[in-house]
Amino acid sequence: MVAQALVETRQQEMGRQGEDLACRYLEGQGLVVLSRNWTCRDGELDVVAVEGDRLVVCEVKTRSGPAWGRPDEAVDERKLSRLRRTALRWLASHGVGWCNVRVDLISVTWPPSGEPRLQHLRGA
């Protein structure tokens, strides 16, 4: 039980570090981060940013290696549909009328003894 809790804590920390890296990357690309880890009954949005007049919802997946598959493999059509619904809830909760929304995927591979690699898939 304790070992599993330690593994979960390490995974959560790696996920947080991956999201931190993703936000720095997005800001370096000129996007403005509006929200992180926003939740509602439909789900969670890892990162909500704006690029010009477009809202960009980013799902961030971080892995330490290939044991659990590539990070982007964790996002299927069902997950994308949930992200879209949750983005609509974000818009409503922030009093934003209709706007152009794009869902992106940021995959971070961060091996224990190496530098992280980030891939940004726009319009997932």
Rank of each mutant, 00 (worst) to 15 (best):
G69T: 05
R85K: 14
S113I: 04
S93H: 13
V2K: 12
Q12V: 05
R85H: 13
E8M: 01
A92Q: 15
R36F: 08
D53W: 11
G28L: 07
A22M: 04
M14H: 15
D46C: 07
C40L: 03
D42H: 13
T86Q: 09
Q11Y: 12
M14V: 15
V57G: 03
E59S: 09
K61T: 05
G123D: 14
R16N: 08
R24V: 11
R36L: 00
R78P: 02
G114A: 11
L121Q: 09
E13P: 06
Q17P: 02
L80F: 01
D104I: 05
Y25T: 02
C23V: 08
G15R: 04
C23H: 01
V57T: 00
L121H: 13
R10L: 13
A67M: 15
D72E: 15
S35F: 10
S107T: 11
W110M: 00
G30S: 02
R36P: 04
S35H: 09
Q17Y: 10
L80Y: 05
G95M: 00
E51D: 12
G28S: 03
Q4Y: 05
G52F: 02
V56Q: 08
K79P: 02
R82W: 10
R24W: 10
G15N: 02
D76I: 03
R102G: 14
T39S: 14
C23A: 14
V57C: 05
V47C: 00
R89V: 06
A3S: 11
E19N: 06
E51A: 01
R102C: 13
A22Q: 03
W98N: 15
V56A: 08
V108S: 06
E27C: 00
P112Q: 10
C99P: 12
G97H: 04
S93R: 12
V47F: 03
L26P: 00
L91Y: 07
V33I: 13
C40P: 07
K79N: 08
L34I: 01
H94Y: 09
R70W: 15
S113H: 11
C23F: 03
A74Q: 12
A67G: 14
T62W: 09
K61C: 01
A5L: 12
E51P: 04
E115H: 14
R89E: 06
A74H: 13
P71V: 02
N37A: 14
R122G: 02
R122W: 02
E44D: 04
C99Y: 10
R102K: 14
V33N: 02
Q119A: 13
E115N: 13
R89M: 12
L34R: 07
Q119E: 15
L21T: 00
L31C: 04
W110S: 03
V7F: 04
